[in-house]
Simulated scan of single mutants.
Amino acid sequence: MTEHNNPSTPAEAHYLAPGWFTRNVANRAVAALTRAGISLLGSRILEVRGRISGEPRRTPVNLLIFDGQQYLVSARGHGQWVRNLRAAQGELCLLRGRSRTRYSATELDPAASVAVLRAYLRRWKAEVGAFFDGVGPDSPDEEIRRIAPRHPVFVITPA
């Protein structure tokens, strides 16, 4: 895990908080469906220990499977689940229905995340494209590399 608990650069401080509708309607609907075992385009519930409370924190995420690996990408930036995952030293669970799988996460260096971000945007651009400053799946590598530090990427493996 890369240490990022205290953001020191503008990229590490980047976070676009969800609005009322996303927090209170969309995320809750996706979470409810995922808890019922219905995955929307790879949705899962991420459960990670809170860095301050120590209590489990849950949030809907998109699980990307790319080149035989599993990834979590933070489209909104360095938010709470990212900070909690770093503090939990990469220990997490993904939930779907009654299924609960433990994983270990390793954060990728932003320079190494270009192909993963491109695959993520190819799959979910309609849902998350607004968070990527006009960069899309067909953008040149240098454009994706430019925004990569603002969007943490974790490769996850079953624990």
Rank of each mutant, 00 (worst) to 15 (best):
Ala111Asn: 14
Ala115Asn: 13
Val73Met: 01
Phe154Trp: 06
Leu64Pro: 02
Gly129Asp: 06
Asn62Leu: 14
Arg98Glu: 15
Thr9Gln: 07
Ile38Gly: 06
Arg145Ala: 14
Glu142Ile: 12
Ala87Trp: 00
Arg51Met: 09
Ala29Tyr: 09
Leu72Val: 04
Ala105Phe: 04
Ala111Gly: 12
Ala119Lys: 02
Arg145His: 11
Leu95Lys: 08
Leu94Asn: 05
Arg146Cys: 08
Tyr120Asn: 03
Ser39Cys: 08
Arg35Ile: 08
Phe21Lys: 10
Arg102Asp: 14
Gly37Arg: 04
Asn5Lys: 12
Ile156Asp: 03
Asp67Gln: 15
Gln80Gly: 11
Ser8Trp: 06
Arg58Leu: 06
Val114His: 02
Asn6Ile: 14
Leu64Ser: 03
Ala13Met: 13
Trp20Arg: 13
Gly129His: 05
Trp81Gly: 00
Thr106Ser: 15
Ile144Leu: 09
Glu47Leu: 00
Thr9Ile: 10
Pro149Gln: 11
Ala112Met: 13
Gly68Arg: 09
Leu121Met: 14
Val128Met: 05
Gly134Ala: 06
Leu41Asn: 13
Ile38Cys: 07
Asn62Cys: 12
Thr9Glu: 09
Thr59Tyr: 03
Val155Met: 10
Val116Glu: 01
Val114Cys: 11
Arg35Trp: 08
Gly97Tyr: 07
Arg150Lys: 15
Asp67Gly: 08
Phe66Val: 01
Ser113Gln: 09
Gly19Thr: 09
Thr59Asp: 06
Pro152Thr: 05
Asp138Glu: 15
Ala31Met: 13
Leu16Tyr: 11
Ser43Cys: 07
Val135Arg: 00
Gly68Cys: 10
Gly134Cys: 06
Leu108Phe: 08
Arg146Met: 12
Ala11Arg: 01
Val153Trp: 00
Leu117Val: 07
Asp109Arg: 12
Ala130Ile: 13
Leu94Tyr: 04
Ala159Phe: 09
Arg58Gln: 15
Glu142Ala: 14
Glu107Gln: 14
Ile144Cys: 04
Leu16Arg: 15
Glu12Met: 02
Thr34Cys: 09
Thr157His: 11
Asp109Thr: 12
Val48Glu: 05
Ala32Asp: 04
Gln89Met: 12
Pro60Asp: 04
Ser139Asn: 04
Gln80Glu: 15
Thr2Asp: 10
Gly50Ala: 04
Ser113Glu: 10
Pro140Phe: 03
Asp141Tyr: 05
Glu127Ser: 11
Gln89Tyr: 09
Arg35Val: 06
Thr106Ile: 12
Ala87Ile: 00
Arg98Tyr: 09
Ile147Asp: 01
Leu117Tyr: 03
Tyr15Phe: 15
Gln80Ser: 11
Ala119Met: 07
Leu16Asn: 14
Ala32His: 06
Ala130Ser: 14
Ile147Thr: 05
His14Asp: 09
Leu33Arg: 04
Arg122Asp: 14
Arg100Phe: 07
Arg150Ser: 09
Val116Leu: 04
Met1Ala: 10
Glu12Thr: 00
Arg28Ala: 10
Leu40Met: 12
Arg51His: 05
Asn5Met: 14
Ala11Asp: 15
Ala148Ile: 11
Arg44Tyr: 02
Glu142Cys: 08
Asn84Tyr: 00
Leu117Asp: 05
Glu3Arg: 02
